[in-house]
Amino acid sequence: MQLVLQIVANGLLIGGLYALLAVGLTLIFGVLRVVNFAHAEFMMLGMYGAYWLWSIYGLDPYVSVFLITPVVFLLGVAVDRLVVQRSIGKPDVTVVFATLGLSILLQNAALTLWRADIRSVSTFATGSVFVVGGVRLSVAMTVSFAAALLFALGLWFFLTRTMYGKAIQAVAQNRRAAALMGIDVKRVYLFTYSVAVAAAGAMGVLVAPIFTIFPRVGQTHIVTIFVIVVLGGLGSVPGAVVAALLVGIIRAGAGFLIGTAWGELAYFAVFLLVLIVRPQGFFGRRGAEVYGG
């Protein structure tokens, strides 16, 4: 029983981290209709930011997160202007391969600049755990979990309760109608993309104390994030959160029961199955897979 609780707790925590990435990715898809293949690269950049600020200035990631997140936001603005917006409305090849190219570029720029060495940040949070009801929880994981949930909740509130949030939703539903209503669609794209990648960057910083840092670290996560986002229904924010937590638990459980590699295989199989049987995911708009692509 204790073991089950521990596995579920581990799964939930890791799922929370995924949620922070997945919510951004799904938001970008919902609003811009672009699958941001470069999404996890912004997390990688956040990690390196945390590493350099820690190793040069001794800044704790929990401090530097407030410096790095705005920088990643600005980077998002630039990328949206230069790459993403230019691909919108173009044929599928352009939409897919523009961000894929960006991902290759960023990954290898990191590789060239900082080499393939595995780096790590060690702070008070690195090894520390606290125990609740016999379940051991990593401090760093818990902090990032909380940040992820806060972000998701804040976003949900923003999207459903504020004027600008509603404008974003209008664009997600029908960009032409939104434009006719006087909404500056391009501004909405810019804002959405930058906020989403800034969240990915923030997550990179927050997990720096516990994850190893290397140029291709994004690559190891992005496919899991795709799985989550499709399970939750591309474009659905609550769907992404639920699916992220679910995948976290499945991963932790399967990893324990049948080994990491076969566990991974299991959820890819589930992913393919969902795409085939219910491509709109569990929360997604029906027909999105046919008409929205």
Partner: peptide, 16 residues
């Protein structure tokens, strides 16, 4: 690494 940076850039520019 640098070769792949160029690759990525090329891919982006071509499809755009």
């Amino acid at each position: 690494g640098a070769a792949l940076v160029v690759y990525g850039f090329l891919l982006m520019v071509i499809v755009l």
